[in-house]
Design a protein around this nucleic acid. Structure first.
Lengths: 228, 228, 228, 228
DNA sequence: GAGTAAGCGAGACGGTACGTCGCGTCTTCGT
DNA sequence: ACGAAGACGCGACGTACCGTCTCGCTTACTC
């Protein structure tokens, strides 16, 4: 059936050890502080072994993050607003985790941190880029299914393009993290989904509630309690 | 008033020569192919001189791009949809210019290219990041003014948050370029604005036209003529 | 008596295949171009197998050369000058074969080539060195016998030390190949023996004949002012 | 006159520090124990700086030895036998110094040690080889002058080829060190010169004196039957 | 017009990390 | 045991590029 075993098999523990060591360095010291040499040493692994599995520091970093984030699946509760908000929040949480890596906690830096470097890694190596795009395609296809079903239920307008909607939602999060430095949190995710669905909800749902717009100027105040 | 002139003044031509040389390398060979040593040599300038003006390769790269892109101001024609679409298209054009740098022209690569590296540069150096954020804040403030005025004219719903709207619009573009690799073009800009304004238009405008949705699957076909 | 056969016997063809592959690489690309991994692959043999027979790349190289050169025995015709010249020429031929390995033919390079690396191999590993020394001791003992017999016949002076004579003869060849880069050929071998035997011949032979020195041009010593 | 000073001049102390550190490692641990990384560290110099001056470990090693040996000039006392013997002894001394490098002092190893590696270095890099050959050409030209003058004085036979004579003399030393592993010392140098000059001395000088052969025990040649 | 403060060209230097190379060992399965 | 296959450990090598420093020279402004 499967290919017969040829040669010495890869030591499964090595992945574990290396990724653990790399994760620690990446989170503690940021992307620039991640050194292949040190990772190898700390993991008790020869550099060549490491390079046999991850041909580049960038590949290693990507693997670390993929390993850290694990699987975040999308749930379908039947309430499209809630599901999308959850999805956005998951993305936001992941971004925030990476954003603050390598910086003294508390330090509310607006820098994109590791997130930007990972994106750049995708730009530097075609294979990483391709993998990332496949990954996003997969997740967005799931989310698109969500939207599709909601539309079929009549919750959303018939002419809605799920791809664009998702671009707008996820895009806003990435834009804030990578470009404007604005915070992304639960509250923002809610407002985002609300706004985006504003014109997408089927007419039956009528105009949106007026949404309390106090203190919108800074858009960073931590006390945005949100509204009904 | 200003500090009296001490010592030899800086040679004004140098900026020009260096930026030209750097731009060529950046566009021809991408970010990784941009080397300070080579730029200095090609520009006929000492590295010292170069570093006196741009303290870092990242700073130089940012300056190059800023110099290349020039000023793209936002116009207010009174037609909010058109103005926003124009704005988005300008952003898209700038992104596309950078995206393809360093790659064989025909090669329709989906990589984020230099864009990602610039974002990463902002993440590596706080001053670059801060400058970028200020820049975006300024431009978005202008765009927000556009939206505000449209709202006051009654074109848009009263409860619309301009910041979120802009996040969704610009965010979608960046998301596509940096994350999903999807193309951003005039057609996409139009559909994007249309979708985003869908629920934001005041009721008076009525439901959106059904919008021809043929061939939405690939979402990359170049011949998407769009509709009114 | 001898140990009973345990397990699978060694495949006799393997030596042949490996040595052939190694010889090709060694001759074509020189010592640095000889790689154990590649030899194994080209010979269709596992590295393990290879290392079971030759514990080191150096050992392999030595084996290759020994295999290439084969046996060069010393003949005793009764004419000491001729016999010694033949011996020297055999050595010279072997040196020349190795000297040019790894270099474009025709290219009259003066480098010592593989010869130097073999000598170094002997310096790196005591067993190789020991083997080489034993080998030379054996051959030189044969040659010393030649000299001894010639002396007993009265052809050579009674107080001649055969060891020193051989040092001078063979040494000159090695010196030229390894140190000065000068060529060693038939002509040189003749002149060498003639010169060395000059003072060693028994008086009865009288002064040496002027020795036809035509075509000494190949010898590149710049200060050859010629002699009477 | 000389080229105007361009750029920062090389720090002269660096050569000193590096060569000292390298010499220590080379002598203490042999050629294999010489590591560029460690030399750089021990000398307190960046590896790049080191590579800027010596492009290869081999080049560094050669420089170390050249620096260690210093200038050994050839003296002309008018007594050709003595002068040649002195020259040979100087060569022998230099060889012996290198031969024992990296080995416990008492250990009378017969290995060629560092000498072989230096010769190999010359074979690996054409520029090193060329330099070595030039160096030997220069020294041998001086020695050839010695011989020439002796011949003109009538001390040596008119038809003697100085190049061959020197090949035989120096060659014997190198041959012993690199090939047979026999020792080279003052005594051997004397016997060597005596033998070589045996037939080269002008007839007027008559047969050679029997040459005191005390303490030949160090010479390990197995077939030393002695002579009349 | 001498002094001086800076700019500039050239290139050495320090530093860090990277990725590579090749060797020789070890582990697995199959013969 | 041998053999094929290939992972692993190890050590060093040479490189790339960055950003700093040290020269000598030049250009202005200042006194």
């Amino acid at each position: 059936m499967s290919q017969a075993q040829r040669g010495r098999p890869r030591d499964a523990q090595i992945d574990e050890r290396v990724l653990r060591a790399a994760a620690e360095q990446l989170l503690r010291r940021g992307y620039g502080g991640l050194s292949v040499d040190e990772v190898a040493e700390q993991a008790g692994v020869a550099k060549t072994t490491l390079y046999r599995r991850w041909p580049t520091k960038d590949h290693l970093a990507i693997a670390v993050v993929a390993h850290l984030q694990g699987e975040d699946d999308i749930t379908d509760t039947g309430d499209i607003r809630r599901d999308l908000t959850d999805y956005m929040e998951k993305i936001a949480a992941a971004l925030n985790r990476l954003r603050s890596a390598g910086r003294p906690s508390g330090r509310d830096d607006r820098s994109a941190g590791v997130v930007a470097e990972l994106v750049a890694a995708g730009a530097r190596h075609d294979d990483i880029g391709e993998m990332g795009r496949r990954n996003y395609a997969r997740r967005n296809a799931l989310a698109a299914g969500l939207i599709e079903r909601a539309r079929e239920r009549g919750e959303l307008r018939a002419d809605l393009d799920p791809v664009i909607l998702l671009d707008q939602l996820a895009g806003a999060l990435y834009y804030r993290v990578l470009v404007t430095g604005a915070p992304v949190d639960r509250d923002y995710a809610e407002r985002l989904v609300t706004t985006a669905l504003g014109g997408a909800m089927a007419e039956a749902f009528g105009p949106l509630p007026p949404a309390d717009r106090t203190d919108r100027s800074a858009d960073r105040s931590p006390s945005q309690k949100g509204r009904s």
